[in-house]
Design a protein around this nucleic acid. Structure first.
Length: 487
RNA sequence: GGCGGCGUACCCAAGUGGACUAAGGGGACGGAUUGCAAAUCCGUUAUACAUGGGUUCGAAUCCCAUCGCCGCCUCCA
């Protein structure tokens, strides 16, 4: 079955066909680095991680570009004109570039913790000012933009397809519903390509029009086309940016080159917390570092990054997702169950007995892989794919207890690793941290487990429980099974 | 006010016209196993898909209305 993706441009699922066979160029809107990453970032980038990984798993050579926005954002609708990076810089008495650097690293730390594949290119807006100026100049030259007092605006009336992505009709929109209309603009829908810097604005560059800074939308058009070509395969981003940001990207990109901008638009949906929109003023704003490490008032406990990733994958990237303590706890139990089954399988595969392969297991594994593949090929249905993994976990447990041969167990183990580790990027840390395989941790635990078993045989349950409890406090869970003690 | 999306069991959630007698995870309950745990295994847990109409031989899936929730509505989120 071929890969089908839901394309916002056409509002339907369609077969995915890359421009160049075997290769995929994908651009995903990255974060604005003025603060630590929050739940919304986890939802968004876990979703796109699954997409990137699945494209690679399917054999495509993927070129993944994700920008870092380090200039040019309003603080909020009510707050006139100051950019968020600059505001944070002033608050902390640092240069804006130090703020951008700090939070770029913070973002990458959080994403790495969830084992999210890093982009191949992470271009920064401030590192592409000349390219943005060139793009603005091209748009002026082609009659798609006009200059007023050192600012340059895109002329929406010059691009008839404006509004096609978000299905909006320019005339029908209630201009000024949220923000005062700028009197310099010919039409309220026109948007800024370049702005003149006011007195005291730190982030400023020379341009043919003024000393100023670029409009937000232009960076994405320029950087995506620079690294992926004038027309590329996939553009991803949050659904809240569908309008106006993505609409503007298309307008700029297509007017500058005269070519289609991007073929498939994939939009990630939003998340809520306890059913409510997350907002700083609502007091329900949860940072990933709080979720992972330090805790938050709305949550009973912290959750491992892999658990958070698992939770996000239980719903579709295009559907909204509600974070709550209960939902995260459920995902945690599920994630650990899958983790333990996978570990059990790896261990069993190492010590399995030599036997000819069983047809039953061979066909079962083929069936698992097919169902998983079908699920992911249907617009990256990670929830259905996870269900298949739970089935593999259940079946492999039965094979182990039936005494399946080593070859079969190795085949099952390999499939489990490929689907959990490669396709979904679920990576559970080893119990004591570090790399369990390369140390003698396992041997030490074995030693303690053996000593405990001797104590149990002697009915010295005080000692055996003490060993179990102390290992548990270090993160090692001992379990007595009919086949001996495991962890 | 306009546009778009969503509403599936106690919770999360997949499924978008017939293979649905509605995945999967969590939780709960019963049983097996067990020194106790934990884990595992077996079984039970939606005649039902927000509500009300309609289309169809057939609808969770399509149409209309209502209710609820979410996002966007213009410029530098």
């Amino acid at each position: 079955m071929p890969l089908n993706v839901y394309n916002t441009l056409t509002r339907r699922k369609e077969p995915f066909e890359p421009i160049h066979p075997g290769k995929v160029g994908i651009y995903v809107c990255g974060p604005t680095v003025y603060g630590h990453s929050h739940l919304g970032h986890a939802k968004s980038y876990v979703g796109f991680d699954a997409i990137i990984r699945w494209l690679e798993f399917s054999g495509y050579a993927v070129n993944y570009v994700q920008n870092i926005t380090d200039v040019g954002h309003l603080t909020d609708d009510a707050d006139e004109g100051e950019d968020k990076v600059t505001k944070e810089a002033r608050r902390r008495g640092l240069h804006p570039m130090a703020i951008a650097e700090t939070y770029t690293r913070s973002y990458l730390d959080d994403m790495d913790a969830m084992n999210i594949r890093r982009p191949d290119v992470m271009p920064r807006a401030t590192g592409h000012i000349p390219e943005q100026i060139a793009c603005v100049q091209t748009l002026l030259d082609k009659g798609h933009a006009y200059e007023v007092n050192g600012a340059v605006y895109f002329d929406v009336s010059s691009f008839s397809r404006y509004g096609r992505l978000s299905r909006r009709i320019v005339e029908d929109m209630d201009a000024g519903a949220r923000v005062e209309v700028n009197p310099d603009k010919k039409h309220p829908s026109d948007f800024a390509l370049w702005k003149r810097a006011e007195e005291g604005h730190i982030m400023r560059w020379s341009s043919p029009w003024s000393v100023g800074y670029p409009g937000w939308h232009v960076e994405c058009s320029v950087m995506s086309q620079k690294y992926l070509g004038e027309t590329f395969d996939i553009h991803g981003g949050g659904i809240e940016n569908q309008f106006p940001h993505h609409e503007c990207e298309i307008a700029q990109g297509e007017c500058a080159t005269g070519k289609p901008f991007c073929r498939y638009w994939l939009h990630n949906n939003m998340c809520t917390i306890n059913g409510q929109k997350m907002g700083k003023s609502l007091g329900n704003f949860v940072l990933l570092k709080e979720l992972f490490y330090t805790g938050h008032d709305l949550l009973e406990k912290t959750f491992e990054p892999v658990v958070v990733k698992h939770f996000v994958l239980t719903s579709n990237y295009g559907a909204p997702l509600d974070f709550s303590n209960d939902a995260l706890k459920a995902a945690e139990s599920g994630s650990y169950k899958l983790r333990d089954a996978a570990r059990e399988l790896s261990r069993a595969a190492l010590s399995g007995s030599p036997k000819p392969r069983a047809e039953k297991i061979r066909t079962a594994l083929e069936d698992i892989e097919k169902r998983f593949t079908d699920a992911m090929n249907e617009d990256f249905n990670t929830a259905a794919a996870l269900a298949v993994l739970f089935d593999l976990a259940k079946q492999s447990g039965a094979w182990i207890s039936e005494g399946a041969g080593q070859e079969d167990l190795l085949a099952a183990d390999t499939l489990m690793q490929r689907l959990t580790g490669d396709a979904l990027g679920l990576k559970w840390p080893s119990p004591l941290g570090g790399d369990a395989e390369s140390s003698n941790q396992d041997d030490l635990i074995r030693l303690l487990a053996d000593l405990r078993d001797q104590a149990r045989k002697n009915k010295d349950f005080a000692l055996s429980d003490q060993i179990r409890d102390r290992l548990a406090s270090m993160g090692v869970q001992l379990r007595d099974t009919p086949d001996g003690t495991k962890w």
